[in-house]
Design a protein around this nucleic acid. Structure first.
Lengths: 162, 162
DNA sequence: CTCAGTGCAAACCGTTTGCAGAACG
DNA sequence: CGTTCTGCAAACGGTTTGCACTGAG
């Protein structure tokens, strides 16, 4: 019954915190661990419904809080008006996101230059970094091949351009 | 009356789009251009109220949409549950954010390595970048000096660490 | 004068919360 | 068995929208 080995990690976390291990918690965790995507709460609800699991949205939110606190899952906000969740069990330890403004597709990439950037701000600003977020928005290959161009509605002659 | 020269740019944008230049639009724009901070809609409402301007929230939101479209203003989401707005008229052309998880303070820093990163993902993924976001969360100098430490509630023995 | 903008209040929508009943330990 | 969880539905809070009225061009 302890399907995914990661479920066991989650259960260990729950026991460490003195929290009950429940059927619903494990089903929500299994849904997240079983996907390599960035899932919205609706996605998770859909996965569970497809398994004939009728788990309330509130429980899904409450379980995701626990998964995030356990650090087994990461929360993302890509500015869509809702959050997405992704488990942290892939091989790539740090990953950044490439987000297509047209189709919304998210690819991951590594950026080996991040540690150097963090070290620099630590030195220059006396800032102690704990986590970061690097997202590049633009057009993915397939949208470019489909001939999509991003509309640019700004001032004809901007004062200064990046 | 055309106080800030940037207001004129905004008015030019409005005329280019065939949209009316109104008192409210200019007051909202002036509030944003007159501050170097990252303003929430409530902040803007407060600034306007302090000037005895009674402008509805809906109008503020609608005007911010126009300012963002004109590319004179940037929208940010620091995961607080609401958006913040900042004009793009400072000397620093590209700026990244250093966000203190304790006091919420936001500092800006430049990262000259971004163009190289963007060039790399363009090459490796066939992705065409249009804009990016780099945010580093952690503890600012003053919170460290005040003795604050970030609580770490995750699993005692994480599977893999970044 | 006409058409778009404004203010108000209601609608929206993702998320959170309160509470009665169910489950874990 | 006591304590925590679950599901439901209502509450929440930032943002958006519908509509009668005002104001820009």
């Amino acid at each position: 019954m302890s399907e995914h080995p990661f479920i066991r990690l989650f259960n260990r976390y729950l026991r460490e915190q003195g929290l009950p291990v429940t059927h619903q918690r494990n089903r929500v965790a299994a849904a997240v661990f079983g996907s390599e995507d960035h899932l919205s709460v609706d996605d998770i609800e859909g996965i569970l419904r497809a398994q004939d699991e009728r788990i309330g949205k509130a429980t899904i939110y409450r379980t995701l809080d626990l998964l995030v606190k356990s650090r087994l899952v990461e929360e993302h906000d890509f500015g869509e008006g809702f959050k997405r969740y992704e488990h942290r069990l892939s091989r790539t330890p740090v990953h950044q996101h490439l987000i297509c403004s047209e189709c919304g597709d998210v690819e991951e990439f590594e950026s080996p230059e991040m540690p150097a950037i963090e070290a620099r701000v630590a030195r220059e600003f006396g800032f102690r970094p704990s986590r970061h977020r690097l997202e590049i928005y633009g057009l993915c290959r397939s949208c470019q091949e489909a001939g999509v161009t991003l509309s640019q509605e700004g001032l004809a002659c901007p004062i200064e351009v990046a």
